[in-house]
Design a binder for these strands. Structure first.
Length: 571
RNA sequence: CGGGGUGUAGUUCAUCGGCAGAACGCUUGGUUUGGGACCAUGAUGUAGGAGGUUCAAUUCCUCUCACCCCGACCA
């Protein structure tokens, strides 16, 4: 490719709307340009990198025996209604109608489509297992697009869907995908951490994110120093510190408590430790049920864990009016003790207690009345929970549940993830069955696996850059060689540069040839550094019979024979 | 959706009631040529949009739209 003809050229200025390194460099280098928020043009340089990423993913997926295909972009809305996802999806579904008033959604993920495809065939256990994948543009009407390519409303995703007969077979596939993903990202120069995470609207019982550690990432997770355990903040487990469990239960006592409504106010007034206080947080779920979550005072409620326990998908905090009028309690003085006896008749209240309440005795907290507190509350004796479980938010410094030591909080970019779906879709969608050995119909055991290509591209730039520009790993670079011709007004030099361009190209090496005559050497070098192609080859009056080679990742330049360069690139 | 911010030339920004400006980029001509060089030259605007106040609005007010950042979501 001749640089003089490349659309577009680099720019010097940093766009004011770009705050992330990857966004700035990709913009300045001429890889991307924005259309609307979260929707980008991939320009000629950008699409080349994108395609390299795609190729790596395809090669690794094919190796596993997965088969590539493609679904329509418009998904019949009926399918999404079948699994009830029209109401549960976290991203806003984009909808559209055709001339016959048929409703479609613009695909944001394709579980229903694949299940619908597979159920069109009556398959036998002999046909299993299989894994189908595609590259296609996904549409997600994100609440907020962000950070250039880091979070888009429209992006190409590789999504794969596996169909197995048994959980055991599935686990083999899941493990295979996990290894494949690690390899895919490795080939792009990305070190990924496999993080247990929440499945959100996708459904299923467990899943893992592939995260590249980065300050600009949105994924918050906790991991042990030795890496034995890594989990997203939403799901991270830790071992509870036991407090005064051996203390004798004292009689329950109601006292006057003229205080503010914060936890600290309680600590000050009673002069007791924070951990001995009960924290009560009242939520309302999407069905209108009130959820009273209670937890030891020194912990916080993890809403994701809570959602799973109560099998809902949305929570909001109850308002002060609701606390007074529906629950007949008082903000800042809520208590599980006797609360079910005072609530409005038509109110459904579920009490969810965190396991931490079993690690403390004689706790204190509100009495459901303004300026009244209870002392010496004990679970079982004074109050009971409808559900008990882990609803605590893990924090840095907590001890990992696996005994791997203290948890460290980290941030990263989620470039891919793998989900166990189990029967989540195949049981909801009629006819998603295969015929087993015994002649009976059984639902498919499923999994799905996604990688966002543009985000991966941006992540590579976040990791590989310096003050001058991008430093592409060879595997995803738009070109392998950036040929810089200097002194091109000299005919002999120009001819030699063209000769070098031809020879490299004839060896199948991808070359971007800066054939411009006008710009100064400094300008051309600055462009080469910004674009970040791995090998910079200079031809000038100085280079004589040899060529000058510099790796983008290194400072030293060396003179060598063209054949030697070809050899080292081909290796 | 809540909070904060920005909209003026292709880009980055000035002007902050009184003729629309600079730098970079672009055109043309020339001098240069190993780290964004220089001289000259020319072109480029519905000041996001609508309404209002005013003798006069890019500037003040109202509304609206777009975009960016933080938060609730995710590849």
């Amino acid at each position: 490719m001749l640089y003089s003809k490349l659309f577009p050229k680099t720019i010097k200025e940093t766009p004011k709307d770009a705050s992330l390194t990857s966004h700035k460099l990709l913009y300045r280098g001429g890889f991307i340009r924005e259309s609307a928020a979260g929707r980008y043009y991939l320009l000629p340089l950008g699409i080349r990198v994108h395609q390299k990423i795609q190729k790596i993913i395809k090669e690794e997926m094919d190796k596993t025996g997965a088969q590539e295909m493609v679904t329509p972009v418009l998904h019949p809305k009926e399918l999404w209604k079948e699994t009830n996802r029209t109401s549960s999806v976290g991203f806003e579904l984009m909808s559209i109608k055709d001339r016959n008033e048929m409703e479609f959604v613009l695909g944001g993920t394709a579980e229903e489509m694949l299940v619908d495809l597979v159920r069109k065939f009556k398959l036998s256990y002999r046909d299993l297992p299989f894994n189908l994948y595609q590259f296609s543009t996904k549409f997600r009407d994100e609440l907020r697009a962000r950070g250039g390519l880091l979070r888009l409303r429209e992006f190409m995703m590789k999504d794969a869907y596996s169909f197995d007969a048994t959980e055991g077979d599935f686990k083999t596939e899941y493990e295979k995908m996990s290894k494949t993903y690690t390899e895919i990202f490795n080939r792009m120069g990305l070190k990924t951490i496999i993080v247990e995470s929440d499945n959100g609207y996708i459904g299923g019982e467990y899943c893992h994110e592939f995260v590249v550690e980065s300050e600009v990432g949105e994924s918050r997770f906790l991991m042990t120093e030795d890496g034995s355990y890594a989990a997203h903040e939403d799901v991270a487990k830790f071992s509870l510190e036991r407090k005064n469990v051996s203390e004798k239960e004292k009689p329950l006592e109601e006292v006057e408590a003229v205080r503010g409504t914060t936890m600290e106010d309680g600590v000050k007034l009673h002069n007791l430790p924070l951990w001995q206080q009960i924290k009560d947080v009242l939520f309302v779920d999407e069905k209108g049920r009130f959820i009273l979550s209670i937890i030891r005072g020194d912990y916080d409620v993890n809403e994701t864990k809570l959602l799973h326990l109560i099998k809902s998908y949305q929570l909001r905090h109850a308002t002060e009016e609701e606390i007074r009028e529906k629950i007949h309690s008082e903000p800042g003085f809520i208590s599980p003790v006797g609360i079910k006896d005072i609530i409005e008749k038509d109110v459904e209240l579920i009490i969810v207690a965190d396991d931490s309440l079993r690690t403390v005795k004689n706790a204190y907290g509100g009495a459901n009345k303004k300026h009244r507190d209870l002392l010496n509350m004990n679970i079982d004796r004074d109050y009971k929970a409808d559900i008990e479980g882990d609803i605590a938010l893990a924090r840095e410094g907590d001890l990992a549940a696996d005994g791997g030591g203290k948890l460290i909080a980290k941030k990263g970019i989620e470039v891919g993830n793998i989900f166990q779906l189990g029967f989540h879709y195949s049981s909801k969608m009629k006819g998603a069955n295969y015929i087993d050995k015994d002649g009976k119909e059984k639902p498919y055991y499923m999994g799905c696996y996604g990688i966002g290509l543009a985000r991966t591209l941006a992540t590579v730039v976040e990791v590989y850059n310096d003050e001058k520009g991008i430093v592409w790993p060879e595997s995803v670079a738009p070109y392998q060689v950036h040929l810089v011709g200097l002194d091109l007004s000299d005919k002999a030099v120009l001819e030699k540069a063209e000769q070098v361009y031809k020879i490299l190209t004839s060896h199948g090496i991808e070359v971007l040839f800066d054939d411009r005559i006008e710009p100064s050497a400094g300008e051309k070098f600055a462009d080469a550094d910004l674009i970040g192609i791995p090998y910079r080859v200079v031809i000038s009056k100085k280079t004589g019979a040899e060529i000058e080679v510099k790796k983008r990742s290194q400072k030293e330049t060396e003179f060598k024979k063209l054949e030697d360069l070809v050899k080292s690139i081909k290796e």
